[in-house]
Nucleic acid binder design. Structure first.
Lengths: 218, 218, 218, 218
DNA sequence: GATGAATGAGTGTTCATTCAT
DNA sequence: CATGAATGAACACTCATTCAT
């Protein structure tokens, strides 16, 4: 029953089967045969659509990352308030989107991180994703904080978000999204509160390297 | 050259070879043959000292966790100041001990997390370790904060520490220990600062869910 | 863009792609997919024009053999001199025709010989071709030599031609056609020279097995 | 039933199974599984003793070449007469030794040649072997012929020997060793006969390139 | 205590072939 | 005519494990 134009359908079908397989047995034991069986197709089809197993894994991770991106962007685009706090909240909540805190996704993320330490192409994907979160956060903090503080706040919040996700994923229990968001929001507010205690002068003093070259702190 | 009393020596030798192998090729490709070769022993000896490969992996993780524990405990025992802030700092710094932020350890941790999602024995190890950090932090926060806040602070700080470690490990670059400690300490201080704005009364008020049922906040 | 009368064009296209594929990766690794890609057509078309892969291989060999035949025949038809020496030279030179000493042809011949040992249809092709060379040579030698000697000369010259070709093909360097022709011609002349030292009586004496039964030497 | 010191026994066992497999189905279809079955061992043992299939193929070819070498050397060492003609005959006969004209060996040689066109390590083996025959022949011809003629004679005789072998192998019938030796010996004698018609002066004249630089013809 | 020979199931991958479109 | 989606068996190779020595 071969058809034309099956490519996008089959690809999605196989990506979802991969997530299912990783959820069931882990990436190490997610054999091509198992994935194909879960997708209800033959073994050989995988190399037809994805060069090899690595190609399928990479495509699966790209898919999860796309979901993450969309989870964040959808929330930001729906905002009435265009202030930094609203955007930061949207970013935080997007990172705990349902697409990121379900079993298959969490197990796949963890397996992906382990693999990314030894596979350059996966590492590249990982770097891009990591930087996107930091960059998004930094951009918003920058609207009310001097550069040095914005960067520190972004680094801290990115780490806190990832850490909350990580500990939630490893717990084995259902992910407590509300609690994670509460803790992350609190951190965000503590960082934003600095805008009232930091003047341009203080900022320059705290970041002597850029004080003269860039008095505005940019 | 069989000798008596070789057991602890051989075990350590094999654990270190395992770390080396995971560093080089990842856990998935760290075969018994490779580990044995790196240790300079025969394949068969691994099942002699560790039942099977899983036994070796578990022993290796236990070893890394022991190093972590010792890194924390050594710093706490060396403290002059017995205050909660000093202890919290020691815990934070212990979590970024050299034994935890080197290549082999970081790669092994990541691989371990991935595996722990599908291997009950590794998951148990993981749960114990996760809980130890939270528990240590909570214990110290509790000395100056009401329980509800202590718990939230501990959850947040544990997540921040793990998140900083995670992002550092995934970066591929050398771990920036100083920066991580600075960010974690700042979070700790922000949490500790709440002791001055929260009275026993406020505390109860802020945590309405437990206020009546548990007036003492425990 | 289906057209009529495409058959001979497509067949030639695919045969040439096969030669190219064998040149690049060897017959063993010359997959249908590779050949189709080199020809710029789809996989499926091969079974349309040639029953299966074996059909394509056989057609390709037939093509090379046809080239060989034409290389020999063209030279013989162009001869002014109709003597046996001229014909033998033409046969020799035809066997080292450019169509036979290029990379793709040489690699295909070698692969073909190996396959012919286990595939009856290829073996048949091979026998016909081998016999044609011997037969052509024998026919010419027979014009000046008694049968027994003509046969021996033909066997020797056929072997020498094939051996020169083989060693040239295996050398990996460009084929030294001139040298091969020189050596083969010399052998031919040494054999032809026997016509002056052999009388009909000697011939019979040297081949006692056929002397009585077949006085004419046929 | 694992034993120590099995290496040479198992290696030989597997090489012979390989020859048998190639004889039965050809190199292309001589799978690891078939070879292992013919040897009566498990599949995995092959990578234990020979890195991979290529290693086994290379070892098998080396073995056949060693047999060839020994076939030649044994005949040469048994010679009473130390003259060039005797040595040349011994070399010729050695090349048609029983170890080289049986089914398995012939099929393996043909398959090896085809493979050697695309596998550098096999090509190296092939080059060494080809050169050994030429070198042996040239060395003997050189004792009675000037260099230029010795080289040409060696090239021709090497080609004739290989060609006779090739045509015999491809014929599908039992190899006619006697006939091959007779034809090769005749060629040898025709070449050796040149020693009586060529003086040192002629030699120089025929090879003008080396005539002045090396009057002795070396 | 230690070796390394041996197993055999399991892996990812390739591929000729088929066939609905 | 021609495509390319789909199959599924076959392949080389890896590997944890066992066990006679």
């Amino acid at each position: 029953m071969p058809k034309v134009g099956m490519q996008p359908i089959r690809r999605q079908q196989l990506i979802e089967a991969t997530l299912q397989a990783v959820d069931q047995v882990g990436l190490g034991d997610a054999s091509i045969a198992l994935i194909a069986r879960l997708a209800g197709v033959s073994n050989g089809i995988i190399s037809h659509y994805f060069r090899d197993k690595n190609g399928l894994i990479a495509a699966t991770m790209s898919y999860i990352m796309k979901m993450l991106s969309e989870g964040v962007n959808a929330r930001r685009e729906a905002l009435q308030d265009d202030g930094p706090r609203a955007h930061l909240q949207a970013i935080i909540e997007g990172n705990f989107d349902a697409s990121q805190v379900n079993g298959p996704a969490m197990k796949t993320w963890l397996a992906f991180w382990a693999s990314s330490m030894h596979q350059p192409d996966l590492h590249r994907l990982q770097r891009i994703n990591d930087h996107r979160l930091y960059s998004n956060l930094c951009c918003q903090f920058r609207r009310v904080l001097p550069l040095y503080h914005a960067r520190k706040a972004a680094r801290g919040l990115a780490a806190l978000v990832d850490g909350l996700w990580l500990r939630g994923a490893l717990s084995g229990d259902a992910f407590d999204t509300e609690q994670a968001i509460r803790i992350a929001n609190e951190y965000m507010d503590l960082q934003l509160a600095k805008q009232h205690t930091l003047g341009a002068i203080d900022q320059a003093a705290e970041n002597p390297r850029t004080a003269l070259a860039n008095p505005a702190g940019a």
